[in-house]
């Protein structure tokens, strides 16, 4: 499958979810500081991974697009709500090549819009009752409840590390945080929900956990790498932003463990107040340090290991399904996630 074909398919899936989102935004006041802003992030052009995985898995299991549409819409809207809140929590300036919502409005409005997006995400889940029946709709609701709980717990872990300026972390700490913060909602639950719908609730979906976990970890590590090395206009966020925000990425954790004592002390001092004046120079120094100690190369390898493990899991859990465009898409998406430049 060509890059262009993959992008086109992702764009198609994202388009379905965007239509669903636009359909549920209330046409009423207050518009200026609430309902008009809800469509902002979704219309900036998301990658479409989550609705893509949900719809493709559903269809790979024999389901139809219309059956997965509500769940795909909810996943994408929850994702965008997380982004609005994440940007506030991380004090980010740019999202998908535009100013973050709290930058061009204010924090209060951004938080409130994020809240509204979370609430609106429940609507399509309630509509699932009409399309899928009450039993399956309730099962999907439970999936989403777990997904949101894991995501906020993961975010809490990372925010806590930053607040306490934790500099002694290992790979397992990172993987646990990423499992909770990213993997459940980016890969595991979209696949689980898609399989539930496509199989009319007959498939035991726990078997997809490892597949989604490996895939999600590869995705997140690649995202962290891109934050350091990507072209800003393609990536859509400020390059090196994670360092400025003090995010505990796998690269930073590798650096903690490999740099010398003096460098570690300087690093810890910087991380204790990443918003201080002059810290852009120190952030550049950290990037050079990561290069010196091979932190980025190390993480590229880990991302490849994870993608390899995800491919192996794919062969195991999707093998019995007949070949289809959607099944092929899921398989190709694994490698695409770690080769992407945006």
């Amino acid at each position: 499958m060509q890059d262009a074909v993959m992008k086109s398919m992702l764009s198609e899936y994202a388009g379905y979810a965007l239509q669903g989102i636009m359909h549920i935004i209330p046409d009423k006041e207050p518009k200026k500081y609430l309902y008009d802003l809800i469509a902002d992030y979704p219309t900036r052009g998301g990658k479409g991974f989550r609705p893509g995985l949900c719809i493709a898995t559903c269809r790979a299991f024999g389901g139809r697009l219309d059956q997965a549409l509500n769940s795909a819409t909810a996943l994408e809207l929850f994702h965008n709500a997380f982004l609005v809140h994440d940007d506030v929590e991380d004090v980010s300036y740019v999202r998908r090549n535009k100013p973050t919502m709290h930058q061009y409005n204010n924090m209060g409005i951004a938080v409130n819009v994020g809240d509204a997006m979370n609430v609106l995400s429940l609507k399509p889940l309630l509509k699932n009752k009409e399309v899928l029946g009450p039993a399956l709709a309730m099962k999907i609701f439970e999936e989403i409840e777990h997904m949101v709980a894991e995501t906020v717990e993961g975010q809490a872990i990372e925010l806590g590390w930053r607040k306490d300026n934790v500099c002694r972390l290992d790979d397992a700490d990172y993987m646990r945080m990423i499992l909770k913060k990213t993997c459940w909602y980016t890969c595991i639950h979209p696949v689980r929900i898609g399989a539930m719908i496509g199989s009319c609730g007959k498939v035991a979906v726990d078997k997809f956990n490892r597949f989604g976990y490996f895939m999600g970890t590869a995705f997140q590590i690649q995202d962290d790498i891109l934050n350091l090395v990507a072209e800003e206009n393609k990536y859509g966020k400020e390059i090196g932003g994670d360092i400025i925000e003090g995010k505990r990425t796998l690269m930073l954790i590798h650096l903690f463990k490999t740099c010398n004592k003096k460098e570690l002390e300087k690093l810890a001092l910087f991380l204790s107040d990443t918003q201080a004046d002059g810290n852009h120079e120190i952030a550049a120094w950290i990037m050079r340090l990561m290069d010196k100690y091979g932190s980025i190369d190390h993480c590229r390898k880990v991302a490849k290991y994870m993608a390899g493990a995800a491919l192996k899991e794919f062969c195991s859990v999707f093998a019995a399904l007949p070949d289809s465009k959607d099944k092929k898409f899921i398989e190709e998406l694994i490698v695409y996630m770690i080769n992407r430049d945006y």
Binding site: D171, A172, M175, R176, L179, K180, N209, R210, Y213, F214, T217, K301, V302, Y305, M306, G308, A309
Partner: peptide
């Protein structure tokens, strides 16, 4: 390396 990292990852998933 791959085995060590994947073992760590799987242990984390099991624990969670």
């Amino acid at each position: 390396n791959a085995q060590r990292i994947l073992n760590t990852a799987v242990e984390v998933l099991e624990e969670e």
